[in-house]
Structures are given as C-alpha cells and as structure tokens.
Amino acid sequence: MMLLFDIALVAGLLTLAVHVVREPDERSAIIAFLAFGLLLGLAWIRLAAPDVALTEIAIGGGGTGILLLRAEAAVRGRGKHEESVTRPGKLAIAVGCAAISAGLGLAVLSFASPAPTLAPAAAEGLSATGLGNPVTAVLLAYRALDTLLEKVVVLLALIGVWSLAPDAAWGGVPAVRSGEIPQPLAYLARILPPFGVVIGVYMFWVGADAPGGTFQAGTVLAAMWLLVMLAGLRSPPETAGLPLRLALAGGPILFLAIAFLGFAFADGFLAYPKALAKPLILAIEAALTLSVAAALAMLVAGPARRAPTR
C-alpha cells in the first residue's frame, strides 16, 4: 500500500516539475512550484525526515513561493528575456541533462552496502547535550560550525539584497504592500498572527526533543510578520533602524560569543560546558529564531524603496 503511495508521490513530483518547466505562463508555473514544494514535504516524511519536511514546506515551498510570486508581479511584462534556444539546441540540452540524471540514478542504484552512517557518532553526543531530537543536536552541537556559517551566509545575502537599494533610499523602508489591499487579506492579517506566533514559539520549544526547531519556527514567525506588513497594518521597519539590526545580528553574535567562551570554560571553540549544554543551546536557539525570522522577512521584503525619515 505504501509502495503505491510512494510511486504516486514520485509521479506527482516529476509531473509537476516538468509542468513548471514547460508552462508558458510564469504565474501558473510558480503556483505549480508551490504545489511541488508541498509534495516534496511529503516525500521527506517518507524518507523518515520530519524536520526536513517542515523546513521544505515552510522555506523551500512557502518562502520561495511568495518570493517568486512577488517577483513575477514586479517584473511582469518587462522581465529581461534571453533569445530562445533553437529546437536542435533544446534537444541537445535535453540529452545532456538526461545523461546527468542517468549518471546520478546509477550512483543511487550503486550506493555502498552496508551504507556509511554517522548516526552512532551523533547518538553518542546526544546524551551529553541533554537534547532529545538528534537533528537539533547535530545542528547546534555536533556540527554547530555549519549552522553558524549558514547564519552568516543568510546575513550576507541580506546585505546583498539591501545594497541594491537606490542611493537616496539607503537605510530607508522597503516597499512590501502594493496598491489596494484585498479585504480577506486584511482580515487574515488580524486573525492569523496570534495563532502563528504561538505555533512558532511551540515549534522552537519542542525542537529540542521533537521535530521542529529554529529555522521552522523562524519561518513561521517571518510569515506572520510579512502578513501584517503585506496587509498594511504595520509598515516595514527602516533597514538602518537599530532594533532591526540588533535582531538580525543578535543570534549569530550570541552564538559566536558562546563559541569563543568554549575556549575558557569547555574543550575549545564551539564546545559547551557539560552541565550548561542544554540551557546554552536553548538560549542560542531563541536568539537564532528571532534572527532567522527577521532575516527571512527582510529577504522577502527586498531593498529599501523610500528614503529614511531622518
């Protein structure tokens, strides 16, 4: 029975992907991509990875979806188009891509057996951190360096986006709402945020022991903030404002500070003293959740459009 479900899921994923590529209308292609993200979340569940499923649905599908839909609306009719590839050219590209897929497929079929795994190593560290969710333990203890660098990459991307602001608007307010706001959107923006904030905080809190965690919680909080800004209930903050900058940098700074304190109080960089491991990890996660929420919302909001008031 599950096999039938798996095959249907794979067929759905591939059909949607092909549809996204072939559909001439940009808007329906992006909506198909949103559906693709949701189905992909189901695939991750089937791969026994609920944490990844939550992240994929929230960020990969939802976050990227709203980003692309806003971009489509902004560049409609005046987007830059390259010259179309000729028919034989397309055929050649298709053959090349199929060859790459076939090679990857062969690699999948000839994976080493028994499979190499780091699960025992991760499980060993689990008891020392006091966490119950192995993925959270890997993200914040076993491979904390990756997570730290990733936070910096997100901030770098945000700096890149902000630097596209016109000179006069530097440090000003991004334009999030566009034109007339439909009534249902304004209604949802009043009703949803209380629930969304509770769900976000819950996801962050259970992330220590159950599927959930910083990124998923941050994305839900970012979505709520964006909803309020899209409906015009609150204007976006000035990108030069101190509270926003503090929220953005606070997570990585606290992470780095605790990482360096590891030299003095534990075994080295990014090591936690054993007795304090769980409280420290929770503190880092809380600060990171806020940073992720602010960074993701600002990435969607885009560069400043209006000059700062001062």
Partner: peptide, 13 residues
Amino acid sequence: QALVITGIVVAFS
C-alpha cells in the same frame, strides 16, 4: 538531514 536543512535555508537566501 541537518545538512539538508542548512542547505534549504541557504538556497532560499
């Protein structure tokens, strides 16, 4: 799994 989560966030950025 943790690396993929990191990857999804970087891809979004």
